[in-house]
């Protein structure tokens, strides 16, 4: 059923094994097995309600926040099953960062938004902290727009697209290696969307990036790998080009044809 990737191009950063999630006993994700590669962008596509966000949130255990959610199966990050007893959530989330659908900057200055993570996690102060903040803002392609009022302006005073890049910078400042993004452009205008897309492509060169999107063209533009979900099942996954041009499963073909018209 699964489309194995052609020759594995890079090392696996995350792997799931029989990952299932249910809410109140209602299954939302059914025994998913998928791998995400280093220095690669993987897109997750599928109709809404198919479990894309659920899968993403299972990868950094944000589902722990939902009392009704029950997770079964395994997720390996660096060879460690994150659902094992005694796993340190702070360490996991330092390694696996996340950006949400709706930008959620903290009600503090731009600088403080980015500085909070490295200050609390690594005890950075002074010059070191400022360098890390600048580096993160540059990587998020936001530095030039905010460098003049870094410590004056609230993160909430930025435009939607800038806010989302601020959230990306905030995530990068913690020095993760795996980036989870849940429909990061769906609340943004076309120009901001294009900027974020370019940014994702750029980040894909250094990070393991997993992007949920309901936009097939976007998945085709930014990802090297794509997974297609439906009714909580991973129907197929593999190289983006192959999945779009020669899908193995009828469901995938129907969905892609239906969407591209």
């Amino acid at each position: 059923m699964m489309t194995a990737a052609v020759a594995t191009p890079a090392k696996t950063a995350i792997r799931t094994e029989g990952l299932s999630v249910s809410y109140n006993g209602k299954p939302a994700l059914k025994s998913v097995n998928i791998e995400f590669y280093e220095n690669t962008v993987t897109a997750l596509i599928g109709p809404s309600g198919c479990g894309k966000s659920t899968l993403l949130r299972a990868l950094n255990r944000m589902n722990d926040r939902i009392p009704d959610a029950v997770t079964q199966g395994k997720v390996f990050v660096n060879g460690i099953n994150i659902y094992d007893r005694g796993v340190n959530l702070t360490r996991l989330r330092r390694e696996v960062g996340m950006v949400f659908q709706k930008p959620n900057p903290f009600p503090m200055t731009i600088f403080e938004n980015v500085a909070l993570g490295p200050r609390l996690h690594y005890g950075l102060r002074g010059r070191a902290l400022e360098e890390v903040v600048e580096d993160a803002l540059r990587k998020a392609a936001l530095w030039d727009e905010v460098k003049d009022d870094l410590k004056k302006k609230s993160g909430l005073a930025l435009s939607g697209g800038q806010q989302q890049r601020l959230c990306i910078a905030r995530m990068l400042a913690v020095q993760p290696r795996i980036l989870l993004m849940d429909e990061p452009c769906s609340a943004l205008d076309p120009i901001s969307t294009q900027k974020i897309e370019e940014l994702i492509v750029e980040l894909g060169k250094q990070y393991t990036v997993i992007v949920v999107t309901h936009n097939l063209q976007q998945a085709a533009r930014i990802s090297q790998y794509t997974g297609f979900l439906m009714y909580g099942e991973l129907i197929e996954w593999g190289e983006t080009r192959q999945l779009f041009e020669r899908p193995q499963r009828q469901e995938t073909e129907d969905y892609i044809r239906g969407r591209f018209g």
């Binding site: 926040r65 959530l89 702070t90 989330r93 900057p105 909070l116 993570g117």
Partner: peptide, 9 residues
């Protein structure tokens, strides 16, 4: 959510 996703306790 944003704070927890950053790894804050």
């Amino acid at each position: 959510d944003g704070g927890l996703a950053l790894g804050l306790s």
